[in-house]
Design a protein around this nucleic acid. Structure first.
Length: 884
RNA sequence: GGGCGUAUAGCUCAGUUGGUUAGAGCGCACGGUUCACAUCCGUGAGGUCAUAGGUUCGAGUCCUAUUACGCCCACCA
């Protein structure tokens, strides 16, 4: 392999490069698992499908970055990496968008009818559908687009139908009237998960319940209109205030309907008035209570939450109008006591934000107990791991207390439930047929309801691969590997995928769940249009590039925790991309220094000079660390460590030092330095590729390399032979000496950086290295000549000094030396050393430490003590010379 | 009412299984147009690691309690 000597541009043109490189990758088929041999181990991620009509927001940017990172990493490890992309029909969300559009046209879905509405929605999907996937491409997402799926595709619809029919046949799906959360605006049932309760201040109304015999029982409620649906009043049997009323009749205010006064321990004597009105048709607690006491159930609401015929004179009024009117009427009838303000949790629809009403309605449910048991076991047994682990507890708690899942929605956009009804015994729905095809015979009417969106999403890991058919993809790529998604949809989606996967394929759909948090702004606030703090990922990409946004997103946080994204960090990541660019540019420009054929392999460890031994030792330790971090899904920390290696060690030290062999060295030294530079840079580009794919791919093309493309290059492995603690220590002393000189020049004496100085060094045990690598000082702190002192030689008086281990560097600055300042500095160091030494001596004299601490820790302390003592003796000597 | 998370430099955050003198970015101060880079380089100031106990040879890291903020779950009208 010879180097292709191409001139590098001054900077990376993100806009141009991203598009060109992405197309090149895709055209070469590298996003497909088929890019690897047929027997390669698969690694599969199913993309959490974004809403088909959505636009990319910062949350998408986070998930796609993390998933792409894992996919690229595993691909480089030689696996058949498959990232299955797709979109979700998002029942409620999409239907709402289309309804809004119709409203703007002055019509409505009811006006145009179901068929026309669906046609319009599909049209909307065709228009908006490509947006989000094309936006994902801009972020570098290396999905297999040939396998892209949509939840309403024929194949996925077939899977949905199959699952529904099988569950029905297994007796796990039932239909019946139940109290469900009803969304009056959307006019559909919603599941418990789709209801959010937050504290709000409302009014608590106290009123008098008329009791037979002319007495009044005081009762409190936050929803007076539900009085009209009361079918009992309950008191605690222990409550002496009311025991005499138990069994008597009460009369519903304004309706005068007769209802019983019952006793139940459920009633809290301390709360409110101690008496509870029971409304089974519109309250979950009361519903349970009514089952226990066999009470009548009355529904007083229409689908739009206006009151129905059961509400007497209030029929036709909106629930809030009815509340006001009823209360006014009760006031007039002297049945009110007071209304005070009260803080409680109000259930609102997650979608529309409107107040949800518990309401009796006939819905389809899935019995969850047996299915949930499988889901629990899989995680308990470790067949599925959740990262971070703490979410396993949350998962257990939910599954242990799971309720049956209400899967029917009174919407039009979605998978229609494969059921048909026929009249029987006067009941128009007396006979139910569930099947893959419509029933034979006459008189059947199809079910109008569709399925909860999450019903189809729950099948995603296998439905996207072709299930229920035993396709080649199902055989090869199922189960998938990692499910990466937000912790906010652990119940909605992850738990259901696990349950459905286990139930229908008998395998966990993935072995690991990796959960990320919410992306927030730099002050930790949620993004909101009202605050105006929304960060548009595409604006970031335009301004800084996709790589910088990706790097910032990954390195800003830790698994499971929310990410506070600071635009300054995106900018810094852009600067980091530039840093790699410039470092590579330096190497590429020096390729012309190659003498003869360049050997791309690394020289043997012992033949290397000290700086090379040092940087390769640091590099291989970095590889080991990064590997450990990747193994435990700590990608952010891995990215930060790579960044730090390049920016704090490789570029400012090794690269600078290498200029000596490159510019002044013998041919062999030049080549060795280049081999180390290229190897180190090459390794860094490989390690960074999953984080910042575009710029690394581009840079890799400039340095000498083997292979077609970085995206399919091998992931680095650490080579223990190059790990060298001794070299790290020795190089560390040289680096610290340079720092001492810089400190003296910059801070103590304010010497122009351009001015060359001479140095005198008492080298202690580092004589040969300082002698051999004196050029380090000339390169890095502008030292012209170094005078190495013989052992026991007197130290120069007119000089500033700095001590590192047992070596001292002197800068002879005749006439400039401020002895007083020197002594202040020396005394301060003296003090520090005494303190540090005392501490270590204390530790080492502790027998428990010496016997119990690991040997290497003890040894490290001993080594340190030796260095500190050597430094102290030099400081002491200096003090006795200078400070009288 | 349960459960969980967070608390480290002025700000935003790292700190892997407990082990040198706790780090980064931004900001701040001082100095820099040397042939990779001003999207930069060098140097520096700045921290009782929320509080109080405890375990340990050794605690930012483990345990207990407390405080503050945030999140999730739950049927008190």
């Amino acid at each position: 392999m010879t180097a292709t000597k191409r001139q590098m541009p001054k900077n990376f043109d993100f806009a141009e490069g991203e598009k060109r490189i992405y197309d090149w990758w895709e055209q070469n088929g590298w996003f497909k698992p088929e890019a690897r041999p047929d027997d390669a181990e698969p690694f599969v991620i199913s993309m959490p499908p974004p809403n088909v009509t959505g636009v990319l927001h910062i949350g998408h940017a986070l998930f796609s970055t993390l998933e792409d990172l894992m996919i690229r990493y595993e691909r480089m490890r030689g696996k058949a990496a498959l990232w299955v992309p797709g979109t979700d029909h998002a029942g409620i969300a999409t239907q709402l968008q289309v309804e809004k559009m119709l409203q703007e046209e002055g019509t409505s879905r009811h006006d145009i009818g179901r068929e026309e509405f669906l046609a319009r929605t599909w049209q909307w999907k065709e228009e908006k559908g490509g947006t989000i996937t094309s936006q994902l491409r801009r972020l570098g997402a290396s999905c297999d687009w040939d396998r892209e799926r949509f939840t309403l595709d024929d194949g996925l619809s077939e899977a949905v139908q199959e699952v529904f029919v099988r569950l029905w046949e297994q007796g796990l799906i039932y239909r019946g009237p139940r109290l469900v959360n009803w969304s009056p605006g959307l006019q559909t049932a919603v599941s418990d998960l789709e209801v959010e309760s937050n504290e709000e201040t409302v009014k608590l109304y106290f009123f008098k319940y008329p009791v037979e015999g002319g007495e009044h029982l005081p009762v409190a409620t936050t929803r007076p209109e539900t009085i009209l649906g009361d079918t009992a009043v309950a008191v605690n049997p222990e409550d002496k205030r009311y025991t005499h009323l138990i069994g008597k009749k009460a009369y519903v205010p304004m309706l005068n309907r007769e209802i019983p006064i019952i006793a139940d321990e459920y009633v809290d004597m301390e709360f409110g008035t101690g008496a509870l009105k029971v409304t089974p048709g519109h309250d979950f607690n009361d519903y349970a209570l009514s089952k226990k006491h066999n009470l009548e159930m009355i529904n007083i609401l229409n689908k739009d939450a206006s009151l129905n015929e059961n509400a007497g004179d209030y029929a036709g009024l909106d629930r809030y109008e009815a509340r006001a009117k009823l209360w006014a009427d009760m006031e007039a009838a002297d049945l009110t006591i007071k209304a005070e303000s009260y803080t409680t949790r109000i259930p609102r629809s997650q979608r529309g934000g409107e107040v949800v009403e518990p309401m009796l309605s006939t819905q389809w449910f899935v019995k969850m107990d047996d299915i949930a048991a499988k889901g629990l076991k899989a995680v308990r047994d470790g067949d599925i791991k959740i990262v971070p682990e703490r979410f396993e507890k949350v998962y257990y708690h939910w599954l242990e207390n799971i309720q049956d899942w209400c899967i029917s929605r009174q919407l039009w956009w979605g998978h229609r439930i494969p059921a048909w009804y026929r009249e029987k015994d006067g009941d128009p729905q007396g006979e139910i047929y569930v099947g893959r095809t419509p029933p034979k015979g006459d008189g059947w009417t199809a079910e109008e309801d569709v399925l909860d969106t999450w019903f189809s999403s729950g099948l995603w890991p296998f439905s996207t691969l072709g299930w229920p058919h035993e396709t080649a993809d199902v055989q090869r790529f199922y189960p998938t590997a990692v499910m990466e998604t937000g912790h906010d949809i652990l119940f909605f989606w992850v738990a259901r995928m696990i349950m459905m996967g286990l139930w229908f394929t008998d395998k966990p759909p993935f072995h690991t769940v990796y959960l990320h948090g919410l992306v927030r702004d730099s002050e930790g606030r949620k993004f909101s249009k009202t605050i105006g703090n929304v960060i548009d990922p595409l604006v970031m990409v335009d301004e800084y590039g996709a790589d910088p946004l990706r790097f910032a997103l990954v390195t800003s946080g830790t698994p499971g925790n929310d990410v506070n994204l600071d635009e300054e960090w995106v900018e810094n990541s852009r600067n980091f991309a530039n840093k790699i660019w410039q470092a590579t540019s330096f190497i590429v420009n020096n390729l012309e220094n190659i003498e003869g054929e360049l050997d791309l392999t690394l020289p043997q460890p012992d033949t290397l000079d000290l700086p090379s031994k040092w940087i390769l030792s640091r590099l291989n330790k970095l590889i080991k660390n990064v590997q450990n971090l990747f193994d435990t899904y700590q990608f952010g920390e891995a990215g930060r460590q790579i960044r730090s290696f390049i920016w704090d060690e490789f570029a400012p030290w090794y690269l600078e030092i290498s200029k000596h062999p490159l510019y002044n060295g013998e041919p062999e030294q030049k080549n060795d330095a280049l081999r180390v530079l290229i190897h180190t840079m090459d390794t860094c580009l490989r390690l960074l590729h999953p984080f910042v794919p575009f710029v690394t791919e581009e840079l890799w093309s400039y340095i000498p390399h083997n292979g077609e493309a970085l995206i399919v290059a091998d992931w680095p492995h650490a080579d223990e032979a190059y790990i060298n603690d001794k070299a790290e220590y020795q190089m560390g002393v040289l680096i610290d000496l340079v720092r001492q000189v810089r400190d003296i020049r910059n801070n103590q004496y304010d010497i122009n950086p351009g001015k060359k100085l001479d140095a005198i060094i008492a080298p202690g045990s580092h004589r040969s290295n300082i002698e051999k690598y004196g050029y380090v000082f000339s390169r890095l702190c502008n030292i012209d000549n170094i005078d190495l002192l013989a052992e026991n030689a007197p130290s120069p008086e007119q000089a500033a000094s700095g001590v590192v281990a047992d070596a001292t560097v002197y800068l002879p600055l005749a006439g400039m030396i401020d002895f007083e300042a020197e002594c202040v500095k020396l005394n301060k160091e003296h003090e520090n050393l005494i303190g540090a030494i005392a501490k270590i001596e204390g530790t080492l004299s502790n027998e428990n430490f010496v016997s119990r601490a690991p040997a290497e820790v003890v040894q490290r302390e001993r080594d340190r003590l030796v260095d500190l003592q050597a430094s102290l003796s030099q400081i002491n000597e200096r003090i006795s010379e200078l400070c009288k």
